[in-house]
């Protein structure tokens, strides 16, 4: 203990502080301070707070997409009218932690923390979201699917700060669903799954699927997506898709569930999400 705590006034200041090393970034602190409290990570020399940086604040409709500042608290995003157009994301954010957690936890924080079970990740992956990063070498944007590199590991380079999450608006007629299983309230997910797709005359189009807590990173179910594209929604299709989805994931066994159970659930959730497209219960 005994680290310094610095609250830079601008992104530029934060970047120059971060470039000096020996420090960690803190947004809402709900992951970081718990990890420090449990001594799961060594105390840094100092914490650089990005919570109030104006460049990381605000939610803006940019026409083709929604730009969400990386330091926007989950509660603010949930209260924003945009959530009506992103139901799967809203559902995921709504089950994250408690009110107290959602009032401070940020969207950038949960992505940069890179937990395999982070609830916000599957819906953002299925929506085709990108992330905007600022660093010593300038700004870049990355597909969220390329951002996660392993449990707690991301594509962030030393000194880089996530500035925004970019969510393309789903096209007209696109549905989105989020399913999640956890043991009790406030527990992280055992399995989660998000699905975006269109369904006209019982034919699937624009299928994008993502799952959480079933691999080292939250991931897109690419082989399953490819199989489903253009298919008619029948029991046979669902059975085959569930089989492919179970092969698309690589879960582990832990206190929340066995690898077998997680694989089973991915298939079940996929079938429920697609059936929900025809008015079935998700």
């Amino acid at each position: 203990m005994g680290y310094d705590y610095i609250r830079p006034a601008s992104l530029e200041q934060a970047l120059s502080l971060a470039a000096q090393g020996e420090s960690a970034l803190i947004a809402g602190g709900t992951d970081l301070l718990v990890a420090l409290h449990k001594k799961k990570r060594p105390a840094p020399g100092r914490l650089i707070s990005i919570r109030s940086l104006p460049e990381l604040a605000g939610i803006r409709d940019e026409g083709a997409r929604l730009r969400i500042g990386a330091a926007v608290p989950l509660a603010d995003l949930l209260a924003h009218p945009a959530q009506a157009r992103l139901p799967a994301l809203a559902k995921a954010l709504g089950v994250m932690g408690s009110r107290q957690i959602r009032n401070v936890a940020t969207l950038g924080g949960t992505l940069c923390n890179a937990s395999p079970g982070a609830d916000a990740a599957p819906p953002l992956l299925a929506l085709g979201a990108g992330v905007e990063l600022a660093g010593p070498a300038g700004r870049r944007t990355l597909d969220l699917a390329e951002f996660f590199r392993g449990p707690g590991r991301t594509a962030l380079q030393p000194g880089e700060i996530m500035t925004a999450v970019l969510v393309p608006w789903p096209g007209a007629g696109t549905q989105s669903h989020f399913l999640r299983r956890s043991r009790v309230a406030m527990d992280i997910a055992t399995v989660s799954l998000a699905a975006c797709f269109g369904l006209t005359n019982n034919r699937l189009s624009g299928v994008r699927l993502a799952a959480g807590a079933v691999a080292p990173v939250p991931l897109r179910l690419r082989a399953t997506e490819t199989f489903l594209e253009g298919k008619a929604l029948t029991d046979e299709t669902l059975a085959e898709a569930a089989k492919l989805a179970r092969a698309d994931v690589a879960p582990i066994s832990d206190l929340r569930g066995t690898a077998w159970y997680r694989r089973e659930l991915v298939g079940v959730f996929l079938a429920r999400a697609l059936r929900a497209g025809n008015g079935g219960k998700p």
């Binding site: 705590y5 609250r7 803190i26 602190g29 709900t30 301070l33 718990v34 914490l47 707070s49 919570r51 109030s52 107290q100 957690i101 009032n103 401070v104």
Partner: peptide
């Protein structure tokens, strides 16, 4: 908020 997770300076 949980004051145990809230840095005082914030």
């Amino acid at each position: 908020v949980n004051s145990c997770l809230f840095p005082a300076l914030e």
